[in-house]
């Protein structure tokens, strides 16, 4: 059964359509990479999937028992976050908030969840460090840990390795790969990195000039759109 289904979705930005008639669906455990040039609507689509922007036509449906409070999200970093005084633990814990009731304080279960995710991304030793003093790669791991606290089934990432050096990027992709394979969490990732996407993903969504390609990685390799795109790079 599909976990996410987009039917004939059109989204626009300031009344100009960014992309039109996009349809695709994902099963639990899929790994989707969204490719495309700047301005092709990748981030817009992510915002649509998250419900931050409205679609101008078509429908985005979550099913298979997935509700909004089970989505994890790793945003592009904003300048505000970079100088925010917060400990790593505080940031990661805040990921558990979406499933909290009204109770104002964190329970033992939530603290354990945060601890587990710190461990899983091997940043436990940074627990009490200040978030803004960390390197870019470490900061992304912290935000990933927070996103993992918020989800058990679907993780959306918006260009997670922007600004990271190749070695750190590779490590980060490896982490995401593990989360997908071992924990069976569905991944949707916006990426600039075609090579990496083809290696790790199960499906590719390519947005370009209002037309879109959606299919498995193998289909994508054979398609004309990928040839153009790969050759340009």
């Amino acid at each position: 059964m599909a976990i996410l289904k987009c039917s004939d979705v059109t989204m626009s930005y300031e009344s100009v359509n960014v992309f039109e008639h996009l349809s695709f669906k994902l099963e639990r455990g899929d790994y989707l990479c969204i490719l495309g040039e700047n301005g092709s609507g990748k981030s817009t689509l992510i915002k649509g999937l998250l419900g931050l922007l409205k679609t101008s036509a078509g429908k985005i449906e979550y099913s298979d028992g997935l509700v909004k409070s089970e989505i994890g999200y790793l945003p592009q970093q904003s300048p505000v976050q970079r100088d925010f005084p917060a400990s790593v633990y505080e940031v990661v814990l805040s990921g558990t908030l979406n499933r909290k009731s009204l109770s104002p304080f964190y329970s033992k279960r939530e603290k354990k969840k945060a601890d587990d995710n710190l461990e899983r991304l091997s940043i436990k030793h940074l627990k009490n460090s200040c978030y803004r003093d960390l390197s870019g790669g470490q900061q992304q791991r912290v935000l990933l840990a927070r996103a993992l606290c918020a989800t058990k089934s679907l993780l959306l990432l918006d260009e997670p390795v922007t600004g990271l050096d190749p070695v750190v990027s590779a490590e980060f992709y490896e982490l995401i790969n593990n989360i997908n394979k071992k924990d069976n969490i569905t991944i949707i990732m916006v990426s600039h990195d075609v090579k990496q996407s083809i290696e790790c993903a199960t499906h590719i969504l390519h947005l370009e000039n209002k037309t879109c390609f959606f299919g498995t990685v193998d289909d994508y390799k054979k398609s004309s759109i990928s040839n153009q795109f790969i050759n340009i790079r």
Binding site: G72, S78, F84, S94
Partner: peptide
């Protein structure tokens, strides 16, 4: 949470 990252809070419900 809202101060640190408003979009994340919104997106996760």
């Amino acid at each position: 949470s809202v101060t640190f990252d408003e979009n994340f809070s919104l997106a996760t419900g």
